[in-house]
Nucleic acid binder design. Structure first.
Lengths: 236, 236
DNA sequence: TCAATAGTGTCTGTTAGACATTATGGA
DNA sequence: TCCATAATGTCTAACAGACACTATTGA
C-alpha cells in the first residue's frame, strides 16, 4: 500500500455506463392445429430460408414495451393480446449483432378472434416443435420463454389470451396444457376454472367433429373469493 | 400506392440495433433487525448524503451475471448467496444517465454467516421501509423487486439464502414473511417446511431473549416427494 | 351401433388454517 | 410467579385427483 493518507480501502474508480448496440426482440406465441407456434420473420432479402424472431432497435428513448408493440403490429397487423418483458440477453450471437437484447414474450389469439392474429408481411407461424435454425441468442430467448410460461401462468390467466372471445372449456384446457407442457385432469380443471369465477357460460353450443357439442364460455373474471394461500413448498 | 411491381405490402426498412449507454444495477437485500435492508452506495464524492444502488457499466461483452457478481463483491467482499436477473429498465432517470439498465436481484445472509455479508467500502445497509431518495429508475427497480420476490419464492427456497447455516425455524419463517410481506401461520409453516424435506434438525438449541430455546436446523433439501400439482386459479 | 367428446357426481387422501396444550426458559 | 416463545396434537373445511357414469353428436 504505497499511498499514505487515504481511506483504508482505496476509493474505487467512479462507475460509468458502457456503450453498445441494443435490440428489442419479440417472442410471439399462438396456438395453431393444437400446437404452440412461434412467429418468425424472413431474415434478409435472400432467397435462402433464413428466419428470425422479429426484432428492431429502440427508437430514441421510447418505452421498451412500445418497441415490442411496434414489432407485433408490424408482424401481425394487430396488438398482441398479452405482452410482458422476458428479460435482457447479452450472450451468444444475435441476428442483428446487438450487444444486448431485451426480449418480450407475447401471445396472440387463435384465428377468427378479435384482435386479428394473421401474420402480415414477411412473417409466418412456425410450430415450436420443429423450428428452423435460429440465432443462438434467440434460441436462448425461446428456451427462457418456455421455462417462464408455467410460472407466469400461475399468476395471471394467460391462457385466455390464446382463445377467441367465445370458447369451449376444452379449448382453454388445451391452451393451458400447451403453455404448461403437461396434461391436466379434465374434471379438476373444469372445477377449478368455474370455482375461480373466471368464466361465465353463454347459451350457445358448438359442435365440432364427432362428439357431443360443447357449451361456449366467455372470459368474465369476477372478484376473487378469498385471500392468498399459505406457503407452498412443492417443487423445490 | 405509386410503386408498381412490388409486393402488396411495401418491404419494410431492414431493422438495425440502436446505440446507447448501458448499466448493470444491483438490488442486494438482506435481513437486519427483523426488517428487509437494501445495500446502497454513497453516490459521488460530495459530502451531501446521496445514495444509489450499486451499478456499473458492462465490461466488454461479459455475461450480465458476471457484472452483477462484480458489483456484489465490490460492495460486500463476498458473492451474494443468490442472484437473478430482474429485467431491463429503460424509462425514467438513471443515476449514471444510462439509456438502459439491467437490474439484478440478490440476497445476502444475516451477519455471522458464511459467506460474509458486511458492507465494504462506501456501502451501507438501509432499511427498505425508510430509504433515502433514489433515482427514479432505481426506485422502479426496487418496486419491481419487491413485487417479484413472492413469485420467485414460490419456485425456489430463497429464504434460506437470508439465514445463517444453522438457524431456527422462526428465523426462516421471519425471512419468508419479509420476502412475502405478509404474516404466515406458524404451525402450518413448520409442517410445510418439515413435510417438504427441506431442512434437517441438529442437536443444538439456542436460547435468545425470553422464551423457550429453539432447536437449530440446517438446510438439507432431500428429493421431492411428488410430481407437480394441478392448476391453481387463485389470485387471478 | 359404435366411437368420440362433453359434462356431472362421488369418493378419498392431503393439506391449510385454526385452536388448544404442553414445554422451557427469562424477568 | 408470570410471561414469552417453542413445539406439538387435533379438528375441520377445502381441494386435487381419480373414477364412474350419463349425454349427445357423427361415422
Amino acid at each position: 500500500m504505497p499511498e499514505p493518507a487515504r481511506a483504508r480501502r482505496a476509493r474505487p474508480a467512479p462507475p460509468r455506463p458502457s456503450r453498445g448496440t441494443l435490440s428489442v426482440d419479440l417472442l410471439l406465441l399462438t396456438v395453431r392445429h393444437g400446437a404452440l407456434h412461434l412467429l418468425l420473420r424472413r431474415a434478409g432479402p435472400g432467397t435462402r430460408e433464413r428466419w428470425e424472431c422479429p426484432w428492431d432497435g429502440r427508437r430514441g428513448s421510447e418505452p421498451l414495451e412500445e418497441g415490442a408493440r411496434r414489432l407485433a403490429r408490424a408482424a401481425l397487423d394487430a396488438d398482441p393480446s398479452w405482452s410482458e418483458q422476458l428479460g435482457a440477453f447479452g450472450e451468444r450471437r444475435h441476428p442483428g449483432g446487438a450487444d444486448l437484447s431485451v426480449a418480450f414474450l407475447a401471445l396472440a389469439p387463435v384465428p377468427g378472434a378479435e384482435p386479428r392474429s394473421e401474420p402480415a408481411g414477411e412473417t409466418v407461424w412456425h410450430p415450436v416443435a420443429e423450428l428452423p435454425p435460429l440465432a443462438p441468442r434467440q434460441r436462448a430467448m425461446l428456451e427462457g420463454a418456455l421455462r417462464a410460461l408455467p410460472e407466469r401462468l400461475d399468476h395471471a390467466p394467460l391462457a385466455f389470451h390464446l382463445v377467441p372471445e367465445l370458447f369451449t372449456l376444452s379449448q382453454v384446457q388445451q391452451a393451458y396444457e400447451l403453455l404448461l407442457a403437461r396434461p391436466l385432469h379434465k374434471a379438476s380443471f373444469r372445477r377449478a376454472l368455474l370455482g375461480a369465477a373466471l368464466v361465465e357460460p353463454t347459451r350457445e353450443w358448438r359442435t365440432e367433429g364427432r362428439g357431443r357439442p360443447a357449451q361456449l364460455y366467455r372470459y368474465a373474471p369476477r372478484k376473487r373469493r378469498r385471500g392468498r394461500r399459505g406457503v407452498r413448498f412443492e417443487g423445490m
